Simulated assay, not measured.
Amino acid sequence: MGDGPVAVLANPTAGRGRYRNLLPAVLDRLSTAGRPVRLIEARTAAQALAGCHAAVADGVAALVAVGGDGTAHLALQAVAGTPVGFGPVPVGTGNDFAVETGFPAEPLAAADVITEALRDGRARPVDLARLTGTGEPPRWYGAVLAAGFDAIVNERANRMRWPRGPIRYDLAILVELARLRPRSYTLRLDGVAHEIEAVLVAIGNCASYGGGMRICPAADPTDGQLDVVVAGAVGRGTLVRIKPQVYRGTHVDHPRVRTYRARTVELAATERIVCYADGERIGPLPVTVEAVPGAARLLR
């Protein structure tokens, strides 16, 4: 980590605006680390991404993301594979990457941890997942890629214009539950192919997604491996019964749920399925995901 300033990316709408007035306090804390603090001005995701890349190119020592998993996801695109330190301040509806990599769930406590690491010049390596095959430049994610029922629900919710707010997602779940059926996938793990019928496929660098759903409960973002969880050809009733167990991670004990571990995962489907990573829309399968050890340097 160099001697440059600290850049801060903030999402004022994260957590549905609950922490809108928190940013000044976060900036005050970061300023006590003895480095200049620079706020990245951005109104859109594209501007945020461009701002993060520009900050890294300009020689910042660290990038801090004040928001949820979506904000962290944008920042990771710029810091991955660089010596720039990264710190997430979790203020979103989903803060899985921050929490799973050891940051406090309370935003100001996380800011204090980041500030102390900046003051000490300390950063710890953590793995990221590198995603290719979408026809776009490589994409990085920190938590989980979803390519089954949860991704299909996200895609449905994003297409809906009514209703607004969280109830839209709930309605999308009901619609897709009514349409639930197994899809055919080819899952290639370190070159070994598996033909599977599944309603849910998740590829985890970390254990949880969706605000604490421990879909890949054994995933460790420091082991150089990806965890893959597959729910096979189950019906609506079984899926509804299994879903609450995901918060405890006990769903993997169900006989129709299988788990795998690999350094490189290739996933394809016989029909169009759009995948999501860190809650962000990535694009349709097929994709290749590779665990990259030490791809980011966390300020903790």
Rank of each mutant, 00 (worst) to 15 (best):
A147W: 07
G68M: 07
M213H: 06
T250C: 02
G148N: 06
V246A: 00
D69F: 13
G249P: 06
D223P: 12
L298Y: 13
T132E: 15
L226W: 08
A75G: 14
T186A: 15
G165R: 06
R258D: 11
V8D: 02
A198D: 08
R188T: 15
C275P: 02
A143E: 07
V274S: 12
N21Y: 01
A198V: 10
E195R: 15
G237F: 10
A172T: 06
N205V: 10
V113A: 15
T71N: 03
T134H: 07
P163S: 00
G232N: 11
G67P: 11
A50D: 13
Y260P: 07
R122G: 00
G237K: 03
Q245I: 00
R38L: 13
E136L: 12
G70F: 14
G294R: 09
A202F: 02
I215R: 06
P244C: 07
A296T: 13
H53I: 06
A277H: 04
R156G: 02
R156I: 02
M1L: 13
A33K: 01
G68R: 07
G148H: 04
V6M: 04
V91M: 12
S208T: 08
A55I: 08
L39W: 02
E197A: 15
D3M: 08
E100T: 08
G4W: 08
P163E: 04
V6P: 08
R248M: 00
L298P: 01
L76I: 13
P182E: 15
L285C: 11
T13P: 00
L23D: 03
L189Y: 08
R122S: 09
L299I: 12
A262K: 07
A110N: 04
A48I: 07
A65F: 09
V89C: 06
E271Y: 09
D58L: 03
T82Q: 14
